[in-house]
Amino acid sequence: GATAVSEWTERKTADGKTYYYNNRTLESTWEKPQELK
């Protein structure tokens, strides 16, 4: 079946920190989402 992984995108802030952005829920998080573990 379909997985939720594609909803999350790994992004970088202007100062180079990595965060994760969810295209479906429009939420962002510093922690790696469960779906990516």
Rank of each mutant, 00 (worst) to 15 (best):
G1N: 14
G1A: 14
G1P: 12
G1W: 09
G1Y: 09
G1I: 13
G1Q: 12
A2Q: 13
A2S: 14
A2H: 12
A2M: 14
A2F: 10
A2D: 13
A2V: 12
T3L: 11
T3D: 12
T3S: 12
T3V: 11
T3Q: 13
T3K: 12
T3P: 11
T3H: 13
T3M: 10
A4N: 11
A4G: 11
A4T: 13
A4M: 12
A4V: 15
V5H: 13
V5Y: 10
V5T: 13
V5P: 13
V5E: 15
S6P: 14
S6F: 09
S6N: 14
S6A: 11
E7S: 06
E7K: 02
E7P: 05
E7T: 03
E7G: 08
W8R: 01
W8D: 01
W8I: 02
W8G: 01
W8Y: 02
W8P: 00
W8E: 01
T9F: 09
T9R: 09
T9Y: 08
T9W: 05
E10D: 03
E10Q: 04
E10R: 03
E10S: 03
E10Y: 02
E10K: 04
E10A: 04
R11Q: 09
R11A: 08
R11L: 15
R11I: 14
R11F: 10
R11V: 12
R11W: 06
R11P: 00
R11D: 03
K12G: 03
K12N: 07
K12L: 11
T13V: 02
T13P: 00
T13Q: 04
T13W: 03
T13Y: 04
T13R: 03
T13F: 03
T13M: 05
A14F: 07
A14W: 07
A14P: 14
A14R: 09
A14I: 11
A14K: 11
A14V: 10
D15G: 07
D15P: 00
D15T: 07
D15V: 04
D15W: 06
D15Y: 06
D15Q: 07
G16L: 02
G16T: 00
G16I: 00
G16R: 01
G16E: 03
K17M: 09
K17G: 06
T18Q: 04
T18V: 11
T18K: 07
T18D: 04
T18H: 04
T18I: 15
Y19K: 03
Y19W: 05
Y19A: 01
Y19H: 03
Y19Q: 03
Y20T: 00
Y20D: 01
Y20P: 01
Y21W: 08
Y21E: 07
Y21S: 03
Y21K: 03
N22D: 03
N22S: 02
N22P: 00
N22K: 00
N23R: 10
N23W: 13
N23H: 12
N23L: 15
N23S: 15
R24I: 15
R24L: 13
R24F: 12
R24W: 09
R24Y: 12
T25Y: 01
T25D: 02
T25F: 02
T25M: 01
T25I: 02
T25R: 01
T25N: 02
T25E: 01
T25G: 01
T25Q: 01
L26N: 14
L26F: 14
L26I: 03
L26D: 09
L26T: 10
L26W: 06
L26E: 13
L26G: 15
L26M: 15
E27W: 02
E27M: 06
E27S: 04
E27A: 05
E27K: 07
E27P: 00
E27Y: 03
E27Q: 11
E27I: 05
E27H: 04
S28L: 14
S28K: 11
S28M: 15
S28N: 05
S28E: 11
S28H: 09
S28P: 03
S28G: 06
T29S: 11
T29L: 07
T29K: 08
T29E: 04
T29P: 00
T29V: 14
T29Q: 13
W30F: 14
W30Y: 10
W30I: 06
W30L: 08
E31K: 05
E31P: 03
E31H: 09
E31W: 07
E31S: 06
E31F: 10
E31G: 04
K32T: 09
K32Y: 07
K32H: 05
P33E: 02
P33H: 02
P33Q: 02
P33C: 02
P33G: 02
P33F: 01
P33D: 02
P33L: 02
P33K: 01
Q34C: 14
Q34E: 15
Q34T: 11
Q34H: 11
E35Q: 08
E35M: 05
E35R: 04
E35K: 04
E35A: 09
E35G: 08
L36V: 08
L36Q: 08
L36A: 08
L36S: 07
L36I: 09
L36R: 06
L36W: 05
L36C: 13
L36G: 08
K37H: 12
K37L: 15
K37S: 12
K37M: 15
K37E: 14
K37P: 10
K37Y: 14
